[in-house]
């Protein structure tokens, strides 16, 4: 039985105080997935974490000095595919050059993308004409 389509489209100011809101949306969505057969409590934490990390990353890479700058987060669930797109208006970065954390010599930064890659099935980062998009997919 297919899951019904669910889409949430949010635009937030470029400020970290909204991370709680975005993470909480992910957590609530996980709890609404009636057909998900895995551990929903774990999925709720993972979606909270992935959305928090992806949005924090977009804020970090956005135009810091422009108070009108925004980050858009689009969550779309259809046919057992959970698709998250996080759009930023910054310079962008090369996802392929982000290394795995060195667990033997841990550093205070660089774990965010590791979490996203660990808990999700696909992560890509693309430049669009007027923005960049981090696209994350998880198969439910």
């Amino acid at each position: 039985m297919n899951m019904p389509v669910l889409q949430v489209d949010v635009i937030i100011p470029n400020q970290t105080k909204y991370l709680d809101l975005i993470g909480s949306i992910g957590e609530r969505i996980a709890k609404e997935l009636d057909h998900y057969s895995g551990d929903k409590i774990a999925l709720a934490y993972h979606l909270n974490l992935v959305l928090t990390e992806a949005t924090a990353n977009a804020i970090k890479h956005s135009k810091r000095n422009d108070p009108k700058d925004t980050v858009r987060i689009l969550i779309h669930i259809e046919d057992r595919e959970l698709n998250i797109k996080v759009y930023d208006h910054g310079q962008g970065f090369d996802l392929e050059t982000v290394p795995l954390p060195d667990f033997e010599h841990p550093k205070a930064d660089g774990m965010g993308l590791f979490f996203i890659r660990t808990f999700m099935d696909s992560v890509t980062y693309s430049k669009l004409p007027n923005s960049n998009v981090l696209e994350i997919i998880k198969y439910l």
């Binding site: 990390e53 924090a56 205070a108 590791f114």
Partner: peptide
């Protein structure tokens, strides 16, 4: 009840 990479990083920084 929730920690992200920057939270872990802050504690690691304190540890170091």
């Amino acid at each position: 009840r929730f920690i992200d990479s920057s939270g872990l990083g802050a504690l690691l920084s304190g540890h170091k």
